[in-house]
């Protein structure tokens, strides 16, 4: 093992949560399919194959950290439930003229300070640098938080959610080919995910947070 770059980019909490949620829904779909296949095979009196056991085993560590991190990121003291793709993109653009460093912008996105005290902690020498414009920054943050955003969040990744939900009733009778069909579908999801990620960089969210130098 060799670490090529320990910190090639910084990620916002929101990005991490999106990734973890995707893993979670992937995993749930996989478990569902595995269960269904197992049931069908049992119904047909076939011997149980070992594939599902392998799937379970691979992910134990990942599952632990995934579930716990999702719990932390979605707990009620985090602003993340009110955040959305569009909101964060806009917030980062709005923060442009104030001359924040990348780290400060990242923390403003992560913590979404809506009170002056919170901003004092994040930004060094806040008064000298911003003076009267502090209130503007806070209002930008408030504007980026949408109280109804929970709906928006789920609709940002329609491909994964929709495919997962509609997938089970599709092939009810076939037994042999179901696994393969499913695999192709996860593939498509992965491709979608990467595309979405690229567009994020184009829109300037990720690009802003990337760290070229330490």
């Amino acid at each position: 093992m060799e670490v090529i770059n320990p910190r090639s980019a910084l990620l916002s909490n929101y990005e991490v949560l999106t990734l973890l949620r995707e893993l979670e829904s992937d995993h749930l779909a996989k478990t569902k399919t595995a269960l269904r296949i197992k049931k069908e095979e049992e119904a047909l009196g076939k011997p149980v194959t070992g594939t599902s056991a392998i799937e379970d085993e691979t992910c134990e560590n990942l599952r632990t950290v995934e579930v716990e991190a999702i719990q932390y990121l979605t707990s009620d003291f985090q602003p993340i439930s009110a955040q959305s793709d569009a909101g964060i993109t806009k917030l980062v653009k709005d923060l442009e003229p104030y001359g924040f460093t990348k780290a400060e912008k990242l923390q403003i996105v992560n913590l979404a300070p809506t009170e002056a005290v919170e901003l004092y902690v994040i930004v060094e020498e806040l008064e000298d640098r911003l003076g009267e414009r502090m209130e503007e920054v806070l209002s930008h943050v408030r504007a980026s938080l949408d109280p109804d955003a929970v709906v928006v969040v789920s609709s940002t990744q329609p491909s994964a959610a929709a495919v997962d939900n509609e997938e089970p009733p599709n092939p009810p009778a076939e037994t042999g080919s179901t696994t393969e069909v499913y695999e192709e579908e996860t593939w498509i999801q992965d491709a979608n995910y990467i595309e979405w990620d690229d567009s994020g960089a184009g829109a300037g969210v990720e690009g802003d947070l990337e760290m070229e130098e330490e």
Binding site: M1, V3, R7, L11, N110
Partner: peptide
């Protein structure tokens, strides 16, 4: 808080 690390 989170970062991307490139590992080989």
């Amino acid at each position: 808080m989170f970062q991307l690390s490139i590992v080989k």
